[in-house]
């Protein structure tokens, strides 16, 4: 017999987590598929009752996406332009049923190399707010996800929110996903980008990222640096901008295909964002 708790207060959730080894559930869309053909006997901490984890709100320094906010909540929220890319990703995560239940935080915690939420959030310089009984701390997303299905989260910790700095609010963002069919599909490659311009129409800031081409989605620092100061973004992408990536080979695509597609998609997104 396994146990199940669904606390209302975050404090109770954290206390329970500190006391025993619990499996945390947000939307449960990554949880149940992993149990097919298995006997599930986990002790469960269900976060769906914790009011404090819901909602998407603006604070002074950052936007706060509660850990229980779903993809659908994000799409329905009234948000500044910098969230356009993340919203585009949201509409392409699984199908509408998944979007109605799955959380953005769960997508990060699950840390799949093909997690669609990661590239847009990398471009937004997102941070992850973590709490345990001792208190709360904030980690950059780049430090939070450590590898394929590995995060910095300790067993007694919860993610409570994803934070996006308000400083980037007016950035122009995009997202593109390449899959072998139109919905319900794991990305072969996905890319995201954020651009800000100065008043002369030159690139002031470029944040670019690529997913499914390495264990964890990566930014493209060399290309980002080259773009600053440019006005024309045609034909700027070259293979060496991706040399730090090491895509996997599987039945969805070879490594060279993934790199080739990533370059095409980044170039297209730059052109889209600058038109």
């Amino acid at each position: 017999m396994s146990s199940y708790i669904r606390p209302i207060d975050l404090i109770d959730a954290l206390a329970a987590l500190a006391e025993s080894d619990l499996t945390v559930l947000a939307g449960a869309t990554d949880y149940y598929p992993a149990q097919v053909g298995r006997v599930a006997n986990h002790d469960i901490l269900d976060l769906s009752g914790v009011e404090a984890l819901t909602g998407i709100e603006r604070h002074d320094e950052h936007w706060r996406i509660g850990a229980m906010a779903t993809w659908r909540d994000l799409v329905d929220a009234d948000l500044p332009p910098c969230f356009d890319g993340l919203k585009q990703a949201a509409l392409q995560v699984g199908g509408p049923q998944i979007q109605n239940t799955a959380t953005i935080a769960g997508n990060l915690c699950n840390a799949s190399p093909a997690a669609d939420g990661v590239p847009p959030l990398l471009c937004l310089d997102a941070e992850v707010e973590i709490q345990d009984r001792a208190g709360s701390r904030v980690l950059p997303l780049t430090e939070f996800i450590q590898g394929n299905r590995r995060t910095a989260l300790q067993p007694d910790q919860l993610v409570t929110a994803i934070l996006v700095p308000t400083a980037l609010e007016q950035g122009c963002t995009g997202f593109m996903k390449l899959g072998a069919r139109s919905s319900l599909v794991i990305s072969i490659v996905m890319v995201s980008g954020l651009l800000r311009w100065d008043d002369q129409g030159r690139v002031h800031r470029a944040n670019l990222s690529v997913g499914a081409c390495s264990e964890v989605a990566q930014r493209l620092p060399a290309l980002e640096a080259e773009l600053v100061g440019r006005t024309d973004l045609h034909d700027v992408v070259r293979p060496e901008h991706f040399s730090h990536l090491s895509p996997l080979e599987d039945h969805r695509g070879t490594a060279s295909y993934r790199l080739d597609a990533a370059a095409t998609m980044i170039q297209r997104m730059l052109e889209d964002l600058s038109s």
Partner: peptide, 28 residues
Amino acid sequence: GCDAGDCGACTILLDGRQVCACLVPTAR
């Protein structure tokens, strides 16, 4: 059809919204 969210055959309405019943804990 799959118990994994992949086929959508179990789709029902929960508070008016479509969800896969195979991915929803009964407690919800």
